[in-house]
């Protein structure tokens, strides 16, 4: 790895981290697990002037019972979340999805906060957060703020986070009684999904889609159809409606829309059966 040169500091608290970001301006980046940022730096597609390393803040790695919701520290690693008993019981979709990210090395280093803050439409966890109606707690020099997942992802690799704002906690409504399904379609187990579907059914049905547009997003047309009484087959046929998925080496937009329909139908079938 031969990145461009950069400065590096370690921060031991969230307040210290956002203070550093605030001083450094837009060219500073937080470094947590590094599994999104470092590959970009290796290719010099990202050239931050300052890395603020928050990886040492172990007090931000936790899964706590917050009454109606689970509170998950932003620095909780995917592997920790996948194995956590409380998460597996109260947010089984999220714990399952965390266990499907990348490969064991990625899950050993990558953090849920890093995955969400990166805002990659190809990542699994943001779609799961959308399906579960999660909300995100952030810190900044202006104080703490909470936003819903639905208002968080604003553009390709862009989020509502200000340059000096840090994600500190993910809150997920408890969903022990819900049925769910996660359908990840890829060619190699370690890869990002070509298309993924995270579906939670708890009275209403919420469907998060992976890699079906510029941001992590919901299959609203299919959700609306279900709410209107459509069958799984009818609803899933609308899974790609209104979306502009990317065309790349893995798949054309047309094929992604087809996959979304197939995978949403399979997810619905599994969730209904479950």
């Amino acid at each position: 790895m031969i990145p461009a040169s950069f400065d590096y500091v370690r921060a031991s608290t969230a307040d210290e981290a956002v203070q550093r970001l605030s001083e450094a301006g837009e060219d500073a980046k937080l470094l947590a697990g590094g599994h999104s940022l470092l590959p970009l730096m290796r290719l010099r597609m990202a050239t931050p002037s300052l890395l603020v390393d928050i990886g040492g803040m172990r007090d931000l790695s936790y899964v706590k019972d917050g009454g109606d919701s689970l509170a998950i520290g932003a620095l909780t690693r995917h592997g920790e979340l996948a194995r956590n008993e409380l998460a597996r019981r109260e947010a089984p979709l999220l714990a399952h999805v965390a266990g499907q990210v990348g490969d064991p090395q990625v899950r050993h280093r990558g953090t849920i906060g890093g995955s969400i803050a990166h805002g990659d439409p190809a990542s699994d966890l943001p779609a799961a957060c959308l399906a579960l109606g999660a909300s995100f707690v952030t810190a900044s020099p202006r104080g703490e703020q909470t936003r819903s997942a639905d208002e968080f992802f604003t553009g390709f690799l862009e989020t509502a986070l200000a340059p000096d704002e840090m994600l500190v906690e993910i809150r997920v409504p408890k969903s022990a009684g819900a049925t769910w399904s996660f359908q990840k379609f890829n060619r190699r187990a370690q890869d990002w999904a070509i298309v993924g579907v995270a579906l939670a059914r708890n009275g209403s049905t919420r469907i998060g889609l992976v890699n079906m547009g510029a941001t992590p997003l919901r299959a609203t047309a299919a959700e609306d159809a279900l709410a209107g009484g459509a069958s799984p087959a009818e609803a899933s046929s609308r899974a790609g409606d209104g979306l502009a998925p990317p065309s790349d080496l893995s798949a054309s937009a047309e094929y992604r829309r087809h996959l979304a329909r197939v995978l949403v139908r399979r997810a619905l079938e599994e969730a209904v059966a479950g």
Binding site: P39, L43, R187, R188, A189, Q190, D191, L249
Partner: peptide, 16 residues
């Protein structure tokens, strides 16, 4: 060339 990383050039692993 479009396949200039091992993210784009798919060498299969044991799991496949």
């Amino acid at each position: 060339p479009k396949t200039t990383t091992l993210m784009d050039y798919l060498v299969p692993a044991a799991s496949e």
